[in-house]
């Protein structure tokens, strides 16, 4: 094989172009992780305080900490409820608004509004909607006679998690929907036409055309969406602070509380590292199971390179 300078220079350029992003990610993500691992082996209480190395003590403490184990369980439920539920709902909404209808352009733009406002706005909006005495949901339900006494959406430990899942989905479903919609738009119209001519019904069209075309997007969103959901902090913090009691205390909330209100950053770091390891295992398994889709999502020069 002879060398080819054109392709080589292209490869070099490709590497150079991605390097800045890689360096930034290393700087603000990988270095903090390393630093977090270091802190987790110490007895540091607040940033800058004196400390000594304690080895695995923080980790061992956490494994015996019922609160931590419970928060892991709550995080798992939260991730399944949010990651899975949001992906499915978004896909359904995207399919629903993909076919033309009056007002489609309006919907495609303004559906994104809940995603685009700060979490603080979301928190105000829904705390106001959920309010027990003057919230519109409770007052109108009681007015209609559906409820006898107000439902404590955020103050009742039994339903606070559901309320938060709803609000979090209200925030992220629009964005995921739009990405699915963009992906649906790239399915060639002829494929549907051919299927219709062949007499394929709605379900068969979805199964044999829509779904395979969506699969790379679904895979990337499945991974990134799950990771986003697992790390949700601001909306929980602003709406319930993990309460009532500890009913909505997921791992990020517990660790934030431990670090900045319990003044124990090394224990919080250890908790973070455990959580991180679990997510990495999830990500590796997920990527391994779906590796074909990920490679597909990266292929451009299908016909030129081989």
């Amino acid at each position: 094989m002879t060398q080819n300078d054109f392709r080589n220079s292209e490869a070099r350029l490709g590497l150079y172009l991605i390097l800045p992003a890689v360096v930034l990610v290393i700087l603000v993500v990988i270095l903090p992780i390393i630093s977090g691992i270091q802190i987790s082996f110490t007895s540091q209480r607040v940033v800058g305080s004196e400390f000594e190395t304690v080895g695995l003590k923080n980790y061992l403490d956490l494994f015996g900490d019922k609160n931590f184990i419970a928060s892991l369980g709550r995080s798992a439920v939260w991730v399944i409820a949010n990651g899975l539920f949001q992906t499915i709902i978004s896909l359904l909404i995207a399919l629903l608004i993909n076919q033309p209808f009056r007002g489609q352009n309006f919907v495609r733009t303004w559906i994104l509004l809940p995603w685009a406002v700060p979490a603080a706005v979301t928190a105000i909006l829904w705390r106001w909607m959920f309010d027990a005495t003057s919230g519109i949901i409770n007052t109108s339900m009681m007015g209609l006679g559906v409820l006898e006494k107000p439902l404590l959406f955020l103050a009742n430990p039994e339903i606070a998690g559901i309320s938060l899942t709803f609000v979090n989905s209200w925030r992220y479903v629009p964005f995921l929907t739009i990405i699915f919609l963009a992906s649906l738009a790239s399915v060639p119209e002829e494929e549907y036409e051919a299927a219709k001519v062949d007499g394929a019904g709605m379900w068969l069209q979805f199964k044999s055309i829509t779904f395979p075309n969506l699969l790379p997007t679904l895979t990337v969103l499945g991974l990134v969406g799950t990771l986003w959901a697992s790390n949700v902090f601001d909306i929980i913090w602003m709406m319930t602070r993990g309460g009532p009691g500890v009913s909505t205390t997921t791992v990020p909330v517990l660790m934030y509380d431990t670090a900045f209100y319990g003044y124990n950053i090394s224990k919080a770091s250890a908790g973070a590292i455990i959580f991180l390891l679990l997510l990495i295992i999830f990500a590796i398994v997920f990527i391994f199971l779906n590796r074909k889709q990920f490679i597909l999502a990266n292929e451009t020069f299908k016909d030129l390179s081989k």
Partner: peptide, 21 residues
Amino acid sequence: FFLLSVYIFPTALLVVPIFKI
């Protein structure tokens, strides 16, 4: 893959080391 992996990292917990760095 490496770039997408940033979303693994628990931001709420990274703030301490980020603050230090």
